[in-house]
Amino acid sequence: MLGDKEVLDAVQGYIEERGESLAEPLSGASAITWHSLLKGQIVRSIESRSEEKHLHPGPLDLSDHPVYDTIDDYQIPRPRDPAEQRTQKMVRRGSIDERSCACGNGEIRCPRCEGEGRIRCEQHQPCGSCRDSTCCLLCDGAGRSALKPAEKQAVAVSMQKAGGDRGDRTRCYECGERDVACVTCRGRGRVQCSTCQGGGSRPCPDCAGDGKVTHEHCAGTGRTVEWTEGTITRAPRTDEVRLPEPGVLYWARRLAEQHATWTPTTLTDNDPLRACVQKDFGSALKPLLRPHHQEVARRTKLEYVRFAKVAVDEHPHRIYYVFPTLKGTTVVRCPSPRRTWQIAGIVASVLLLLVLINRFIA
């Protein structure tokens, strides 16, 4: 852990290595400001327990499931890795109920055809070509014709032997006139049902004409199994640790990420950094270390660094940061806040001048 003297010696050595002189050696701690940073993760294993009734169609072997009496009293080992997801399913003792289904043999009467095996439908359907309005331009499908029944039958036979129609109109089956009827229904205004082929019924598509379907409740097995299932789930939850809060010591934090050696800490009772970290972060750290509801395990992976910020009276425009490293210390020189504002003011003035010159020339 760095001390005041070590910090001042490091800054003085840094200044002298660059050929700059000091009126007198740096001494005292009045120019030193200490800062601490903490980063990392706390991974917690959060446990939840629940019970739910289940129904399985058909036989089911649950003998490989652990048995419990009270879900809250059932114990399972602590997780070795809190980041691992785990789910344990169990069966409550005495809750398994295997029984025969009310259907008897796994089948029930088909609800669509009500057990008849066939579905009724209309023998004829309206003609899609003439739409019942122009089936015949003369009789409109009414069939009022001067042809006698025998003549009408002869016309129908001759049209069938012709082997096809010509144009978009043909002879009407009803009145016998040529080139006046729809070629699809031939003047009738309706066509035979394509599903039942005019029979008035068709096999039920659900039961395929059998009149019975599989009972979904038991999946056709005639048996069911009911039981109460207990579930213990352990899910990881990760809390990011970044103290102080983002935005605080922004530039110092960036420099520490680049130049400092961070020390791992677990904040356990035997951790030598525990007291120091708790002193530095106090109330901000306390809620992060407090056990969460239903927490059964945790893994803490944190890194800590303590560094110094030094202001030297002879160099008022500079700030020196001293970071601990594996080889000792590293000193980083930065402009002081006052100097930073001066530079920003100069840059803004130059930009403004360039804008005015550009407007003048234009």
Rank of each mutant, 00 (worst) to 15 (best):
R86N: 11
R86V: 07
R86D: 07
R86G: 06
T87W: 03
T87K: 14
K89D: 08
M90H: 01
V91Q: 08
V91Y: 01
R92W: 02
R92A: 09
R93L: 14
R93G: 05
G94K: 12
G94P: 03
G94S: 12
S95D: 00
I96K: 09
I96M: 08
I96T: 14
I96Q: 09
D97N: 12
E98T: 07
R99P: 06
R99A: 13
R99M: 09
C101V: 06
C101N: 07
C101I: 06
A102W: 12
A102R: 11
N105R: 10
G106D: 05
G106I: 02
E107G: 05
E107Q: 13
I108C: 03
I108W: 03
I108K: 14
I108S: 05
R109A: 13
R109T: 10
R109L: 07
C110M: 00
C110P: 01
C110V: 00
P111L: 04
P111E: 04
P111Q: 05
R112D: 14
R112F: 14
R112K: 15
C113V: 05
C113F: 01
C113H: 03
E114G: 04
G115D: 04
G115P: 02
E116Q: 12
E116D: 12
G117E: 08
I119A: 03
E122F: 05
Q123N: 05
Q123M: 08
Q125N: 06
Q125T: 13
P126V: 08
C127L: 13
C127R: 11
G128D: 05
C130T: 08
C130A: 06
C130P: 03
C130E: 01
R131Q: 15
D132T: 11
S133I: 08
S133E: 05
S133G: 00
T134I: 08
C135P: 02
C135T: 04
C135W: 00
C135R: 02
D140C: 13
G141P: 05
G141V: 07
A142I: 01
A142H: 12
G143E: 01
G143M: 03
G143T: 07
G143H: 03
R144L: 15
A146M: 05
A146H: 04
L147E: 06
L147Q: 07
L147K: 07
K148D: 11
P149M: 00
P149S: 02
E151S: 07
Q153C: 02
Q153N: 07
Q153I: 02
Q153G: 00
A154M: 07
V155P: 00
A156V: 10
A156R: 15
V157W: 04
S158L: 10
S158M: 08
M159W: 08
M159R: 14
M159E: 15
M159T: 10
Q160D: 10
Q160F: 13
Q160T: 11
Q160S: 11
K161A: 15
K161M: 10
K161Q: 13
A162P: 00
G163F: 03
G163W: 03
G163L: 04
G164Q: 05
G164P: 01
D165S: 14
D165M: 11
R166C: 09
R166F: 11
G167D: 12
G167S: 12
D168T: 10
R169Q: 09
T170E: 01
T170G: 01
T170P: 02
T170M: 05
R171A: 14
C172D: 11
C172H: 09
Y173H: 10
